[in-house]
């Protein structure tokens, strides 16, 4: 299969969905020329200025406008240039998009996608490096996707655009230039279906978003030491495919959950709770968790490395779970 990078996979999904459905429109800062990350490049040339529009720097305004366009029957895909900026638009996303269908007794649906890159590793500092899926998976009415490779990026974005519900779509800056095999044309990854990204037998590593890549690197390191790690990627955290996660744990009897958001009330807390509910008798060790340390993400490269999780942290957590180290 041909290999393309994550940005191009997202771009291909947008091209295909805009071609397929005239109701799909794109709004956001710099979406026309797409100088910053390039996910929306070429869309304006192909689909025109009515459907692809640069917005002023007013997240509250244009995310709210996305909600309104969805109310009027369109399927807006809104770009938030850095995930951190969504905080300027919490009301339209959380109070409006997520609740409107319910609050109006099912009279309408809100097929809105808010897609945005999160994550650190690029020295952008505390307000341009956050990963916030844990916040949004708490909200009834929202769905949250976190693709970890180019194929899932394409397949999940296509699902998100076709979904009649609002979707918070978490991309990652460190993934943008990563390459991988991506099917051409129709390639759909359904929501709520976890994927086993590497098979193994000694321990289950559950990674979220970019941290799936850290899990895969850790698994490689562990393999050289004779430890067989299975890597499972939920792909969407709302809905969350707890069945597949628990099934893996029933096989390996041990589990470490790796995310880039902060530990406290993180995605891992939710997953750990569901695993102990569904596979308590199969666990041979406490569930391990790897996440960002309890600080904002600092600018300086060594400080940033220290706060963010890396494959070394994952290896260490695995060894603890296996009783190899204390």
């Amino acid at each position: 299969m041909r290999e393309i990078n994550y940005v191009d996979a997202l771009n291909e999904a947008l091209h295909e969905e805009m071609e397929r459905d005239k109701k799909v429109i794109c709004l956001g800062e710099d979406v026309e020329l797409a100088y910053v990350f390039g996910v929306t490049k070429g869309l304006k040339d192909k689909f025109g200025g009515a459907r692809v529009r640069d917005t002023p720097i007013s997240e509250l305004g244009f995310v709210g406008a996305g909600v309104g366009a969805a109310m009027a029957g369109y399927r807006p895909v809104i770009e938030i240039m850095f995930m951190d900026f969504i905080m300027l638009a919490m009301d339209p996303l959380v109070n409006q998009a997520a609740k409107l269908r319910y609050m109006l007794g099912g009279q309408l649906s809100i097929p809105l996608v808010v897609r945005t890159p999160g994550g650190g590793g690029v020295q952008y500092g505390p307000t341009h490096s956050q990963v916030l899926e844990a916040w949004f998976m708490q909200v009834p009415g929202l769905k949250v996707a976190c693709p970890s490779d180019p194929a899932d990026a394409k397949g999940l974005l296509k699902s998100a655009i076709r979904d009649d519900n609002p979707v918070f779509f978490c991309e990652h800056k460190m993934l943008y230039k990563t390459k991988g095999p991506v099917p051409e044309g129709e390639h759909i990854v359904p929501f709520g279906q976890a994927a086993v990204k590497r098979e193994g037998s000694d321990i289950t590593l559950i990674g979220i978003g970019y941290q799936v890549q850290n899990c895969l690197r850790a698994a490689e390191l562990l393999a050289s030491e004779g430890i067989s790690a299975e890597v499972v990627d939920p792909r969407t955290v709302a809905p969350l495919d707890t069945a597949t996660l628990a099934e893996s744990v029933r096989k390996t009897n041990r589990c470490v959950i790796v995310e880039e958001g902060h530990l406290r009330s993180g995605v891992g807390a939710e997953i750990a709770a569901s695993i102990q509910e569904e596979a308590f008798d199969y666990l041979d060790a406490p569930i391990g968790r790897v996440a960002a340390l309890n600080a904002p993400i600092p600018f300086e490269v060594e400080l940033e490395d220290y706060v963010l999780p890396n494959e070394g942290n994952v290896v260490e957590a695995v060894k603890k779970a296996l009783g190899v180290i204390a």
């Binding site: 009515a50 406008a65 309104g68 366009a69 109310m71 409107l100 109006l104």
Partner: peptide, 25 residues
Amino acid sequence: HYGAHSIVGANMPMAAGMGLAYQIE
């Protein structure tokens, strides 16, 4: 009638979005 919206001011961005849809339509 696209709704009463009880968060003060929340309905204005939505109106802009509906206007955007109507313009394209």
